[in-house]
Simulated scan of single mutants.
Amino acid sequence: MPERPVAMFAMTAENVPQIFPPEVLARLRGLVEIDPSRVAEDFTDPGVRDALAGTEILITGWGCPALDTATLDAAPKLRAVLHAAGSVKSFTSPDVWGRGLVVSSAAGANALPVAEYTLAMILLAGKDLFTYRDRLRTDRAFPYGRIVPGIGNFGRRVGIVGASRIGRRLIELLRPFDLRVSLADPYVDEAGAAALGVPLLPLDDLLGGSDIVTLHAPQTPETRHMIGRRELALMRAGSVLINTSRGALVDHDALIDALRADRISAILDVTDPEPLPADSPLYDLPGAFITPHLAGSQGNEVARLGLTVVDEVERLLSGRELAFRIEADELERAA
């Protein structure tokens, strides 16, 4: 039987048993030599440094320290970095690809719960559920039996900004519903949008023609505050902005003014900064519904990330192409 390659976890140690519960860890240990009690939270730790010398596969996750040149020099046998989370931007460097290392990410697996969260919020927002929940709490009365005008999800116009992994998954999840979905993305052409089954619109047209706008663009210098005062003014009165991408895509000062004017409402799972300061008006404005970055994998969902990595290890060891390989040139447009 061939000798199993040596692997090591590099992430926040407390996350390992959640991402790799017993049944997932057992599959992984059948493929590689890995000690779940040794987790690299600091690559300068002497014990970790010694272990790096024989490590061929790094299994990374949230809290992974930077893979700088000194760390890579200490790991001469390293051939793959398999990330059990989303973006690899925070800990990789050009040197990772310069040395020919294979990099993979479970971002696709993490896209599903974000898309599910967004779907749920779209349907709830279409019913204006948050407004009526608050009204019921205040008034303790409601005209039961009467048709409530202006709400509902039949023909509701949903604008998706960004055909990212999450944006594409959301398009799939929205298909069974009687919603009118459109897309804005400068990197998608008409043929690409047709393949996704949605019309492609300029961003301004999407903002002005949608009842619900949901953001799924990456955070780059170009997308910072892409939804600012001008863009918010283009949105229809009574429309809803959903952000599950990155807080910096939205100019929060401009958003607060729009919410105070009661022109639009907002559902934010991400903010800028994160967490919000305790005195942020967003906590109390009636048109704002804030959740603490819960859309991504949480609880039992994180095991899906571990399973994705185990599947990638199997592909790597059998010589097959990785399903979720990340190339260096993709990082510029990635979240």
Rank of each mutant, 00 (worst) to 15 (best):
V16Q: 01
A109T: 11
R156A: 11
A184Q: 13
I151T: 12
M8K: 05
R157D: 09
A258F: 03
P273Q: 13
A40H: 10
Y117F: 11
L58W: 04
V103F: 06
G100H: 02
V39Y: 13
P273R: 13
V213D: 04
I151Q: 12
G150F: 01
L28Y: 14
R263D: 06
D284S: 14
D50T: 13
D68Q: 10
E274Y: 00
A7R: 01
A66I: 07
L234T: 02
R146I: 11
A51R: 02
G47H: 13
V81D: 07
A115H: 01
G152H: 11
P292H: 07
S280T: 05
Y187S: 13
A303V: 11
M226Q: 15
F43G: 03
E172Q: 14
T291D: 03
A66S: 15
A335L: 06
V48K: 05
Y132V: 06
D269Q: 08
S87W: 03
A217M: 03
P286C: 06
G108H: 06
L25N: 08
G100M: 00
G238P: 10
I212Y: 10
V32P: 04
V81W: 01
Q298T: 13
E231H: 08
R49E: 06
G209I: 09
I147Y: 12
D211C: 04
S239E: 00
D45Y: 05
G167R: 03
